[in-house]
């Protein structure tokens, strides 16, 4: 029980001090789980993070589960994941409650209409960065262009796109090896 509580609290701390998840989480993760607790090595953290990126789910939760699992098996993984999501649930609930109450105020409305522009900028920047990392040759360029073309003209479920890309990748992977 002591270990599980320790995992929960440590990942609660990591969750609450990470803005934006993903890559931003790594330095804090290394300080808490590697240096302070000695649960895993830096190399292990990098391996977990690498696998988390290419398996389904939220990267931060995947990484937390791997570390928790190493410390205390299945329950350890669950405790770490719970610790990671707890701050989000608490903070967002409080904020969402406040915002919903005041969203009809003109000042809040105009603030959010400005904020929407910043969100558009953030997403466009994220797409550009992702494009540079994922479109690396003719095949990946082809997948990107074809997917975008399909999405522009047909209303197709997101899952169908992911599964389609997965199948195509497997076929190409086989062709290469």
């Amino acid at each position: 029980m002591g270990k599980l509580w320790e995992l929960y609290i440590t990942f609660f701390k990591i969750g609450i001090s990470t803005f934006g998840g993903g890559y931003a989480m790594l330095p804090i993760l290394e300080r808490e789980a590697v240096e302070k607790k000695g649960w895993v090595s830096v190399t292990e953290v990098m391996d977990y993070y690498a696998i988390s990126q290419c398996t389904p789910g939220i990267i931060a939760i995947n990484t937390a589960t791997y570390i928790g699992h190493k410390v205390n098996d299945l329950l350890g993984g669950i405790a770490a994941a719970l610790g990671m999501i707890s701050p989000s649930i608490i903070i967002i609930m409080i904020l969402a409650g406040i915002i919903q109450r005041y969203s009809a105020l003109p000042i809040v409305e105009s603030a959010f209409s400005g904020i929407q522009i910043a969100v558009a900028v953030i997403i466009i920047n994220a797409v550009i960065k992702m494009y540079k990392n994922s479109v690396v040759d003719k095949i990946t360029l082809g997948i990107f262009v074809i997917t975008l073309a399909i999405l522009l003209f047909v209303d197709i479920p997101t899952i169908a796109v992911i599964i389609g890309a997965f199948i195509i990748s497997l076929l190409i992977g086989r062709g290469q090896s």
Partner: peptide, 21 residues
């Protein structure tokens, strides 16, 4: 398998997020 799957899924996910953008 994991690597080759990721290789092809990432550009598709990028297109999906571009549409959201």
């Amino acid at each position: 398998i994991l690597k080759s799957a990721f290789y092809g899924i990432r550009p598709a996910v990028c297109a999906l997020i571009a549409m959201a953008g």
